[in-house]
Design a protein around this nucleic acid. Structure first.
Length: 102
DNA sequence: TTTATGACCTGCA
DNA sequence: CTGCAGGCCATAA
């Protein structure tokens, strides 16, 4: 009764990320709140980086509170454009219209 | 256990 | 929203 928690968080996070509709973007704090870890927003990013290892998830729809895309991942911008997400500039999305509300 | 790092958040200007 | 400073939690060394 000790190792679990890692899998638990991943399961909860991916479950929420998978429910994000197309053309919408959710913030880490939003997801963290849904899983009951609003303080662990940073873990979401760490988990999402591992999410690719666990399975295919729309991690490109997840951005930070400022609407900034993942640093070092220019491909995410292209993926969001296909979903119909509006962009303010090369690395910032228009959360005003694309922010996901559950 | 302590230190350092991170796909972050909130508050203030 | 943007930029700066402080803070919370989990992982790795």
């Amino acid at each position: 009764m000790k190792k679990i928690m890692n899998e638990q968080l991943i399961y909860e996070v991916l479950s929420v990320v998978e429910e994000i509709p197309e053309g919408k973007v959710a913030t880490y704090g939003q997801i963290a709140c849904l899983i009951g870890r609003d303080k662990n927003a940073r873990l979401i990013g760490k988990i999402l980086s591992q999410a690719e290892f666990y399975g295919q998830y729309p991690c490109h729809r997840v951005v930070n509170h400022a609407g900034r895309l993942v640093p070092g991942w220019d491909e995410q911008r292209f993926l969001l454009l296909e979903e119909g997400v509006s962009f303010k500039n090369s690395n910032h999305v228009d959360m005003k219209k694309n922010k996901w509300e559950y």
